[in-house]
Design a protein around this nucleic acid. Structure first.
Lengths: 334, 334
DNA sequence: GGCACTTAATTAAACGTTTAAGTAAAATGA
DNA sequence: TCATTTTACTTAAACGTTTAATTAAGTGCC
């Protein structure tokens, strides 16, 4: 490994001069800089980030906490896209991404973050009631959370309330009044969507029917199919069913076809997420596409801003709207 | 930040003693160790990985190179699962994962790896002809590649040849003889599968018909649908169509349904990958599930072994078989 | 009591950077 | 011409660890 010392010797200058030359300080002559850089290049010099971090107390590294119950957020389409976008934006700003997860070393998330000396942490797709997560959130580290709001932190959240509202208003505008909702696991996200479901119906002058709602789970087409069957068996069955996500909606589609009914002619179906796959099946799902790209982007920008301006005590909740994808799974009722 | 110095002062011992006590060296008395550890705990001490790395030249960090043409491998189901598994196994062994990607700092992958001082690198889902990738592969760093073989490196590859063979043998055992194959982009993976397609047909005594094969692309249902239409329009059309991946197969399914034919009664369809979604649609796809879990696991184990035993010059190609998922998209022909 | 050995600690240097403070020479200005 | 400023560099300390070398005290043995 070539170090500044090697360059210094080769150039007959001090190590400090080399450091300053490579970091483009103003108190080094132009020709010296040029010469040092050439030699550095020629010797194949790479700066050593550990040494640099030790001195500067900055690692230019961002920690990512992305875990959901054993299964990592990585295989979760929506979060994978958020992370992907986050990563891209961070890299452009010169930050690398390191995962801060369950370690064998029985370190807490905060300990792990301190150990690695990350400059900041983004948290998403975790159990936000977890003691370790809360410790991290309440630490001195710059933190941005995604899809969960803490009152002392910057958060970037997908607009679940607005999303649900616009979906229902859209369906309603096509003539639907009997709108069922099979919703996901009990999380802040779900609670917002459910509340918005009820509020929107009320605002539209529709009386909500509790037998039209089911507590299901995310990404569980089987369970969604089961509740769909129950809905189909009702005397006064809904004309449209909303699902917690696109996978569940596909489960619903199958259940509907299985009893010989057709989507959207006999009953309409609406997903959530706008996954790639939702647009290649037949019928294409009408669904709500969360802006994962934008969420990741904003989270990265916010966190980096926070890191660079540590004294900023700004607490923000940034709401990111998505958009309706008009597939072919909802029929206009005359 | 609490450092060893603080603990040393508190305990009236030298910094070296603290270091040794915390690292459980044998030349420190038991009571001293205990005391030092208690104080460390009480003060909320975290070791500093930068300082440690500076001394030991080990970061306990693994670099991950996962890029495909602009779009990161993160959003690619198969690679997301491989990475997820890789990450889990690495973490258990005490390694963290850092992405080594395109940086704004115009560093090459190798430079980036050296800069971060990663102990090793896993490469997957990249353009393996890229100059920068080759430089990394030919560097002194421990490297493991996934789904691509270099003759000087350990590689872990999904058994594409065997996978293709077992799929075709399976289909053939159900009575199919006219088997079409729409395949993906020109990569090593594709070439292996195509070769295996021809070899297996030959071994089964079936004369391959070149008009039954199409160069399509991965994850491109539109293009797959187009070639499917061409196949359907043939006078002597195939009884079964193989696709490069499950998404493409779904595109094929749609194209088939669109002309009023039914899968599998009128024609059979076979995917590749065994994505979650392939098993929740109707009909469920018959497909080949690559063992992404195992691939990630083996890659991690191999890389860590290589890191811990640097002088090992072992070069291996580890083939990981997957398995057929019998869905409902292939009919038995009498 | 003297010798060798063991145990438990310390000292000091090193890892590769950054940076405040210092210095010597050159340029500027009256 | 000499004081002042500017330019271009060097010195030296520091960041938080690890570790080889050293030391000092205690133990056991004859």
């Amino acid at each position: 490994m070539i170090s500044m010392k090697d360059i210094a010797e080769k150039c007959s200058v001090s190590v400090a001069t080399v450091s300053k030359a490579l970091n483009d300080h103003t108190d080094i002559g132009e020709d010296t800089k040029k010469h040092i850089r050439e030699v550095a290049e020629r010797l194949g010099y790479y700066p050593n980030s550990s040494a640099r971090a030790l001195k500067t107390k900055r690692t230019e590294n961002i920690g990512v906490l992305f875990v959901d119950e054993g299964r990592s957020g990585l295989t979760h389409d929506y979060f994978a896209r958020v992370l992907d976008s986050f990563k891209r934006v961070s890299e452009v700003s010169g930050y690398d991404i390191t995962f801060i997860n369950a370690t064998s070393q029985k370190m807490t998330y905060l300990e792990h973050s301190m150990y690695r000396g990350v400059d900041g942490v983004v948290i998403a797709c975790v159990d936000f009631d977890d003691r370790d997560v809360l410790d991290l959130v309440n630490s001195d580290l710059p933190v941005v959370t995604i899809d969960h709001v803490f009152d002392n932190r910057i958060s970037v959240v997908s607009d679940n309330i607005g999303g649900m509202r616009s979906l229902i208003e859209y369906i309603h505008s096509l003539g639907h009044e009997r709108i069922a909702y099979i919703y996901g696991d009990d999380t802040a996200v779900t609670r917002n969507r459910v509340a918005s479901y009820y509020n929107t119906l009320r605002d539209l002058g529709i009386e909500a029917d509790d037998s039209y709602t089911f507590a299901s789970a995310y990404r569980n087409p089987k369970l969604a199919a089961k509740y769909t069957e129950e809905l189909l068996a009702m005397k006064k069955r809904p004309t449209c069913i909303l699902y917690p996500d696109d996978y569940s909606a596909i489960g619903g589609l199958n259940a509907i076809e299985a009893v010989g009914l057709t989507v959207p002619d006999d009953i309409s179906v609406v997903g959530y997420d706008g996954l790639y796959v939702s647009q290649i099946i037949h019928p294409k799902l009408t669904t709500y596409e969360q802006n994962s790209e934008e969420i990741g982007r904003i989270a990265a920008k916010s966190l980096i801003r926070l890191i660079r301006d540590r004294k900023s005590t700004l607490i923000e909740k940034i709401l990111v709207p998505g958009k309706i994808i008009e597939g072919g799974s909802v029929k206009k009722i005359v």
